[in-house]
Design a protein around this nucleic acid. Structure first.
Lengths: 367, 367
DNA sequence: TTGTAGGCGTTATCAT
DNA sequence: ATGATAACGCCTACAA
């Protein structure tokens, strides 16, 4: 445990240097008066308007004055106050992001993609996690709107069935784009995975491999993602003359290794346990795989496992997990790009689009 | 590809309802005049000060007026403008976060912990990734300072050897707390892992298991974390009469599975390849494990592997990875708590502390 | 307990 | 090309 007392660092540079030259008492000014465009204007004997224009590199300003302002700004160690700028210009250059959680790979990757694009376009990113709570989500959306973010990217919580809070901020004039978890009720741009097609494809793959009694381990079917993959699963089975019995559907309330493990145990106790298991997400597939090994169930001999998402982890476990690759980073980028496009669009009638990302089948050892 | 035209949703509720009742023309007010405390004041025939106080639940206000204001605010669909509030109060209630990347588990967990605490304390979080670039980091720090964040949490980039940019924002009066990646030069609070002790412990474990030729796969030794774990490694070897030969140190420029795999290949070509490999982070351990399997190297029979961090992945691979558990989520929480403590501290002389988190040895199959 | 009025630091609209 | 000046929406002494 090392601890230091805060130290007053006295340096005759930057702002203080300027003040010193003006003949002011340094000690009296230790409250560190922050330099504003007003100070620059006074020092240069021009108006604040001129300074403001010069700093924002406006065309309608003489080159020399612009240079003079820039130089004086540096000399006085001036730093713009973005709060004031935002208040005045009505543009905060902030994007709001709402995700269920930050610490699952899909979401952190998506956030990374969002930040990546935002940064390059000069936008900051404000991030919140709803923790799958509707109540929290409502609060968050309100906070973001009140913070005057220029737009919101969100994947709503699994509790969310009412979308008034989202509609409400849209009515306030704030563009909202949905990604991954979307709904029909809202007129927004959306970035989604082809869940139906993806699920169908991977289940077809299982069928092709000879598996006949394929179970689906789902998250809450109230979420479009979960339901769509379920429908893809059903469709694939139907096309192959197989039935998706109720018995083979397990819906878990929360995504975790443990819940997946439990689900497997439950399935295994049935009269006719499945010979393959399609999991809504890789995290579940991993949990199942782990439980299978502990239970002495050979994978893929007695049980094939397939996931969805292509988290890093699936590649390195033994046996490695067959999955549908979802480019989460790129999804974040796409969502951010589309949102910025709407923000920067002049027209009143922005055309909302739904961008569908096609996942890729990655066949590995688990099937 | 579904696409919809933006729709004007006309509803006689909220703000418009109020305006309608006032006899104003709805169509003329479609520009959605945002309601301010001024409007509430006018409607209630009180001053803006009263409204402001009532909304902030000030003590010095009569209960009835407070209620009246609150009710009218709701009726008029009032939403506070946090930008204006921040500008005026000089508190933005925003925390800035700078990390190398969001999409590695350690960092996303830490961010999650930070957001978690921040949210509960009424703070928003603005997140940036430096991508290990010094130049970008300098820009980011400037942006955060200009955004008037109330404090900054950061883990600097691996390129960063000069800390003036950080000192500069501190001089501007913005508290900065360092976590995980810290340096001696800066007088700030810090949250660190006991890297020396942790590395020593896990290497001692390897020695105890009978391994004698233990290599260290490091990240850039310019980072304190990498160096400290190196020193712990050296110390453990020394105490056991073993030598940490230069030959057994591999420094990779960037954290990736691939680089780790390459490093193993390099080591394996040596006259006397190592019999154990301590990796700076789990991600490297996984890369090495994967390469070992492909190269037919039995783990742990011919090569023991140990990591650091306890990412989820290490638990599920075969053989599972021995590692030092680093509670990243809690580190984020701790860092956030300490920063908020400084922000909320009245005193001029805040006592900077260094919080050291002890990692836990997790022995698994790879050793 | 409530009101008045002057900021907070920029931007934007008119003039000149 | 530059200047005055009024917003932007809220907070906070200081008065009353």
């Amino acid at each position: 445990m090392i601890s230091n007392r805060r130290q007053m660092i006295i340096s005759i540079t930057g702002a203080n240097a300027y003040i010193a030259r003006q003949g002011m008492d340094i000690n009296a000014s230790m409250s560190k008066k922050t330099i504003t465009i007003k100070d620059i204007a006074r020092a240069l004997n021009v108006s604040v308007a001129t300074v403001s224009r010069a700093l924002r590199n406006s065309e309608e300003i003489k080159k020399e004055t612009k240079l003079a302002v820039l130089q004086m700004a540096k000399e006085m160690d001036y730093h713009p106050n973005l709060l004031a700028s935002s208040l005045s210009s009505k543009k905060s250059k902030i994007l709001g992001v709402v995700v269920p959680t930050i610490n699952r790979q899909f979401w952190s990757n998506a956030i990374s993609g969002i930040e990546n694009i935002a940064y390059h376009e000069g936008y900051k990113v404000m991030i919140f996690q709803s923790a799958e709570s509707y109540k929290k989500e409502v609060e968050i959306v309100e906070i973001l709107a009140n913070s005057r973010v220029d737009g919101i990217l969100m994947a709503y919580s699994q509790e969310t069935v009412d979308f008034c809070h989202i509609q409400h901020v849209m009515d306030r004039g704030i563009p909202v784009h949905l990604f991954e978890r979307v709904c029909e009720e809202l007129q927004t741009s959306k970035v989604v995975t082809d869940n139906f097609g993806g699920a169908k494809q991977i289940v077809q793959h299982l069928v092709d491999r000879g598996y006949k009694n394929i179970a689906y381990l789902a998250g809450p079917l109230s979420l479009n993602v979960c339901k769509e993959r379920y429908q893809g699963y059903q469709s694939a089975l139907a096309e192959n003359g197989l039935i998706a019995s109720e018995d083979l559907l397990v819906e878990i309330p929360e995504f975790s290794y443990e819940n997946a493990a439990q689900a497997l145990m439950g399935l295994w106790k049935k009269e006719t346990p499945p010979d393959a298991l399609f999991c809504f997400a890789d995290i579940l597939a991993i949990g199942v795989l782990h439980a299978a090994r502990e239970g002495g169930i050979k994978v893929p001999a007695r049980l094939a496992i397939a996931g969805f998402g292509n988290d890093d982890i699936g590649k390195f476990v033994t046996p490695s997990i067959t999955t549908m690759a979802q480019p989460s980073f790129e999804m974040g980028q796409t969502a951010a790009r589309m949102l910025l496009e709407e923000i920067n669009s002049e027209e009143e009638t922005f055309v909302y689009q739904t961008e569908t990302i096609l996942p890729q089948l990655v066949v590995r050892e688990s099937s």
